[in-house]
Write a protein that binds this DNA or RNA. Structure first.
Lengths: 127, 127
DNA sequence: TTTCCATTACGAACAAAATCGTATTTTGCT
DNA sequence: AGCAAAATACGATTTTGTTCGTAATGGAAA
């Protein structure tokens, strides 16, 4: 395992990471604009949050010009796995099957999604 | 949608719910004993937490005798779904398929779990 | 009934996370 | 150069969650 990754984004940090992952990189203004679609908090709040994330090493930034450009420093996949594992252990008694079935039920998954999963499952089985 | 369920258990509350779900009902002492296997915090901490949960309506209790007996007021399934949905939307861009495949990969799932899921998937498809 | 101990009640301290106000800095424009 | 607009820096406050100390209470056993 690489250099021990103890990074654990908070809820708000995760929201910001979403945006950074989607856009590869973004300024504080960009992020704040995007966040404003679903939240109502001030610009400096977003700024502060991103500064803290920088200090923690969750993001990197290019501050060579006035407008700092931020980039995610943790991968989406790795973070997904991290939270997923925690959820499987914490809420589903360690059974990923239980989680999967719960996700498949509740009409969460469309037909095409089910097909996709089927294909993936076939792949796994032939290994 | 029924009477707006804004209940959002915190991390510690979730730990306690785990125990209550497993045992149907339990006293503070029972819960604390169980928690002590993995944590080290005082008895009154557990007590306070459960009292708060009661105030929030996360648990009910029978206080007819000295030792209060607590029961979960939210179902395991409903809570799982709540957190799962949040995760699908927050971390997986709304795609439950993405979450499922992530959970299946990473050698999280054993062969028998895969079989179980396959069976479940077949069921879903014939509906 | 009185005592003793396990339990509950409750306030307060502590910690973590989120929010904001204000000062400072940068840079483009005149 | 000097100004205005927009961005960053940073401390302080607020909110939420966790932990604990101490007082009050109830009930079983002496």
């Amino acid at each position: 395992m690489s250099t021990a990754n103890k990074i654990k984004p908070t809820g708000s940090e995760l929201e910001i990471l979403q945006i950074l992952w989607d856009r590869e990189s973004a300024s504080v203004r960009d992020v704040h604009e995007e966040l404003s679609k679903t939240k109502t908090s001030g610009y400096t709040t977003t700024l502060k949050l991103m500064q803290i994330m920088f200090e923690k090493g969750i993001v990197t930034r290019d501050d060579s010009s006035k407008i700092h450009i931020y980039q995610p420093a943790v991968s989406r996949k790795k973070t997904q796995k991290q939270f997923l594992d925690k959820m499987i252990n914490g809420l589903f008694g360690g059974s990923s099957a239980a989680l999967v079935m719960q996700a498949l039920g509740n009409q969460q998954a469309s037909q095409s999604e089910l097909d996709e999963i089927q294909k993936y499952l076939d792949d796994l089985k032939t290994k």
